[in-house]
Design a protein around this nucleic acid. Structure first.
Lengths: 315, 315
DNA sequence: TTAATAATTGCACAAATGTGTCTAAAAAGG
DNA sequence: CCTTTTTAGACACATTTGTGCAATTATTAA
């Protein structure tokens, strides 16, 4: 590569990229054939005589998204950059905002949108300045919390979402975990529950959180579990839950007495939903998020950088 | 400009410029209309989210070339970067090389190429590794030096050029300045000079140097001038010469006894040559180069950065 | 909230760019 | 110096990109 050639390539690149002339113009001016100019530009890029930089964009984050998508066969992955100095609350808020933005992006006028429990899901409400006005239906995917936790009711989430997006919402008037299979079956067999179940069959979008290990204290609904439940889950090596349904690290759903007493959309159901969006972050949740992904329940994951890195590194 | 929008633009720019995907692909992937992608890229460039840098290229030099071209109605201008630590010899060598490269670039198989005096012109010879093989004719545009300076004869330049480019050359067997108009007329009226004059009429390319003030010592041919010549030129405020013809700072050609005794192509002749290339540098020559440009004799100038800057600043 | 203002979509068409192939010319190497 | 290997020219054609415009949809401000 001659020095004059480098200079010529640089000049052509300058005229094209900086001055914005067309290749034809440059060709005429320099008495070089147009197609040659085209090839010269290729070469100039190859040899890094032309350098294109993009601000406000982290290619590593993008690559991480791509890898996640590929590894777990996802339709989409959204990774929020991790701010090293932020506390957990701020990190969760950032995730909530990203989730809200994504919902706004994908929602269509007459969609049916399901929500499960989740601190981050609850945080989504109120994050949007000008939500798209729709006529969508918002439906809980699980039962509610214990009476002492009523302000965090999943019904509250769908109600607020409906208000924001101009649609309407359905309620579940029962706690997520009942005392016996008999009662549970009674509730979900009752007439008023038909509409919920019907909606579960025709979800367009489902937003679900992912719960971490049992030892974690942050759950809003697990006070419904009995000591015996906890004991059993521990024995069967539960590492987390999604829609109030527990599974182990291999992604095996832990059916049994507890699941028989639980009011929630059956997890395999989620696979048929066009947009199943999991929203979760934090290092303690890495195993449960990974297991969920392995189960193939989700086709979109919204998480943060540090969590995503751990998920990929754990492979 | 929203933060999310910036990020979106950055992502689109990344996919397009770095990953090399087409706008259609990006549109499909992000569910955005293709033309919107096109407009997003425009915006990303405008807002400097995308930055394109070009190495080995000095935009200032380029702008200087453009300004020179525009100011003096030139077809071309070539400016060699000035190396602050180079001495005059090195600077002249760099200019010679650029001139040689340019000749190689524009010469065509059967061209007639004229050369005048000039240290830089003389330096052109031997600068090319693989000169284009032509069948061109090389012809002197002026007479030779005094006998004491015979190794710098203009005939030597054309002879060497012809050897390099595979063509042939014509000679002038007379000094540039004769003792009287009578002798001069005799020489240029002689039969053997017909061919030269004929060639002067059909030049395709002319390379000419530009001489600086009389006080300057670097000239190779001015020892032919008499004391009286010098006195007269001083009175008439000569600031330089081109092809052994002097002019003042306004570009007025100083006709008279001296010019009547000079064997050289008449300067106005140069205007009809398709490529008239002036090659000169140094700060002392700025006034004479400027005057030459104002006369409109040249359509191409090859000089260096420091000289070019002075020429433009002097305006 | 509504009205005004701005931005995006969707489309048709024009312009610009890229690529394969062949020929001609130029560098490189012996 | 001649031969081999690279590079550029020239062209046809396919692909990609840009632009004006009308209709729609967001966003802002009152």
């Amino acid at each position: 590569m001659d020095d004059n050639r480098r200079h010529l390539l640089a000049k052509v690149a300058y005229l094209y990229y900086i001055q914005g002339r067309t290749q034809s113009q440059i060709a005429t001016e320099l008495n070089i054939y147009r197609t040659t100019i085209s090839r010269m530009l290729q070469q100039a890029r190859q040899q890094h005589i032309v350098t294109i930089q993009i601000e406000d964009f982290n290619p590593q984050l993008f690559n991480l998204e791509e890898k996640l998508k590929q590894r777990f066969n996802l339709k989409n992955a959204i990774i929020v950059p991790s701010d090293r100095v932020a506390n957990n609350q701020q990190k969760n808020a950032a995730l909530s905002k990203a989730a809200a933005l994504y919902l706004k992006q994908i929602i269509k006028p007459h969609d049916t949108v399901g929500f499960a429990w989740g601190l981050v899901l609850a945080g989504m409400v109120g994050q949007l300045q000008h939500p798209t006005q729709t006529d969508a239906t918002f439906v809980p995917l699980v039962g509610g919390p214990s009476p002492s936790n009523s302000q965090y009711h999943v019904n509250g989430i769908v109600y607020d979402a409906a208000r924001q997006f101009g649609g309407h919402s359905l309620f579940v008037d029962a706690a997520a975990v009942q005392e016996s299979k008999l009662i549970r079956d009674g509730i979900i067999g009752a007439k008023y529950f038909y509409e919920i179940k019907r909606r579960w069959q025709q979800l367009d979008i489902a937003f679900v959180g992912i719960g971490g290990p049992l030892s974690s204290k942050s759950s809003r609904w697990r006070d419904l579990l009995t000591d015996q439940d906890r004991q059993l889950l521990k024995e069967r090596e539960a590492i987390g839950d999604c829609c109030c349904t527990f599974f182990d690290r291999h992604g095996k759903i832990l059916n049994g007495d507890l699941s028989d007493r639980t009011i929630a959309i059956p997890l395999p159901h989620l696979q048929r939903v066009p947009n199943t969006v999991g929203v979760a972050r934090s290092l303690t949740k890495v195993p449960s998020i990974t297991a969920t992904l392995k189960m193939g329940l989700l086709n979109t994951l919204i998480t943060d950088e540090e969590t995503a890195k751990q998920i990929m590194d754990a492979q």
